[in-house]
Amino acid sequence: MKILHALNWIKFAGTENACVQLCNELVKEHEIYLMSDKNILKYIDKNVKLIEINFKKNRYNPIFLHKIAKILDEISPDIIHAHNAKVIEIIYNARFFMKKKIPLIATKHTLEFKKNYKLADLCVAVLDETKKILPPNSIIIENGILYKKPEKIKKLDKFHIISSGRLSAIKQMDVVIKALSLVKFDFVCEIFGQGEKQGELERLISELKLDKKVFLRGFVDNINDHLASCDLQIIASKFEAYGLVAIDGIYYSPLMISTNTGICERILPSELKFSATPENLAHKLDEIHANYDKFVQIFAPIKAKKDEFSVEKMAQKYINAYENLIKDFKK
């Protein structure tokens, strides 16, 4: 099958990661094109054919739309898979300039309502909550990731905590830092990610005199290695549409706790959830530190189900969806 993915690159975060994981898995058996920014090149398999497009241009510009249509006509994919609301509209409008109409499928990776999804021939939600804001012609396909055997990093001599994600208000890294200023045990915490709140978080760490305990490490390509080498992973997000970082935790972390959001709302028992205030999180951390083996055992059955979140399963569900849409399109 010839499949073209279209992604408006913002930065390498959840949506971009999900698209890359899918493309890299599908290219093992299919011809895959990815229409996106050149910045994504280092993340994709060498067999994925990148078409450099700046989707930030005016989506109503007929010259730009004609350019997109010409590219699509030349490739002539069996199906087009869009990963952002803006891209859906661009592809939909470009189809008016094309020689033949190609079916358009779109995945909703966030919980922000966007009316553009009604333009797709089929919508995919990553969770039940996401499906509620999509048109009736929607199905659910949960995200998956590719397992990479981690390399152990030297074990620290203190209780080692990791939190990873975009440094934005919604991820609530400030709650993690404030909670750590209240705990009753010694620790080291590494926060991985980039974002607009970095300066604010650096100041907070300094104000709370945590400079020798909490470290902002930026973005890394080997988060699996770090998670496999820590004692605890914290997800403090206000909400997640899905949360690939949680799947990372299931694959690699010995123990993970989270707010009641995204995939964690469904897969984690109450003992591994907390409400996102510094006091509540600090209490949970003290409890975990005092009874660590007990909490690791609680998390073990969730880790045992990691194959349910494999990229292979996700890719096969998408292939089934593509084939069904193509079949319906020909009727």
Rank of each mutant, 00 (worst) to 15 (best):
176 V>Q: 06
177 I>N: 01
178 K>I: 14
178 K>L: 13
180 L>Q: 05
180 L>M: 06
181 S>F: 03
181 S>Y: 04
181 S>A: 06
182 L>T: 12
183 V>R: 07
184 K>Y: 11
185 F>Y: 10
185 F>W: 09
186 D>P: 06
189 C>Y: 00
192 F>K: 02
193 G>W: 05
196 E>R: 08
198 Q>P: 11
198 Q>M: 14
199 G>C: 09
199 G>H: 07
200 E>F: 09
200 E>H: 09
200 E>Y: 07
200 E>D: 07
201 L>H: 05
201 L>I: 06
201 L>C: 06
202 E>N: 09
202 E>I: 09
205 I>H: 13
206 S>C: 13
206 S>Y: 15
206 S>M: 14
207 E>W: 15
207 E>H: 13
208 L>G: 05
208 L>R: 05
209 K>N: 08
210 L>D: 00
212 K>E: 04
212 K>A: 06
213 K>E: 00
213 K>V: 01
214 V>L: 01
214 V>S: 01
215 F>L: 02
217 R>M: 14
217 R>N: 07
218 G>Q: 01
219 F>E: 00
220 V>I: 15
221 D>N: 12
222 N>F: 11
223 I>R: 02
224 N>E: 14
225 D>F: 00
225 D>E: 02
226 H>C: 00
227 L>Q: 10
228 A>V: 03
228 A>H: 05
229 S>K: 04
229 S>H: 07
231 D>P: 09
232 L>I: 03
232 L>R: 03
232 L>T: 04
233 Q>S: 13
235 I>M: 10
235 I>H: 10
236 A>P: 10
237 S>A: 12
238 K>V: 15
238 K>R: 15
241 A>S: 09
241 A>R: 04
241 A>Q: 06
242 Y>W: 13
244 L>I: 14
245 V>H: 04
245 V>M: 09
245 V>Y: 03
246 A>W: 06
246 A>P: 08
247 I>K: 11
248 D>P: 08
248 D>V: 10
248 D>S: 09
248 D>Q: 12
249 G>R: 08
249 G>P: 10
250 I>F: 10
251 Y>C: 08
251 Y>L: 10
252 Y>P: 01
253 S>T: 12
257 I>W: 03
257 I>D: 01
258 S>H: 07
258 S>F: 07
259 T>P: 13
259 T>Y: 13
260 N>M: 15
260 N>A: 15
261 T>L: 11
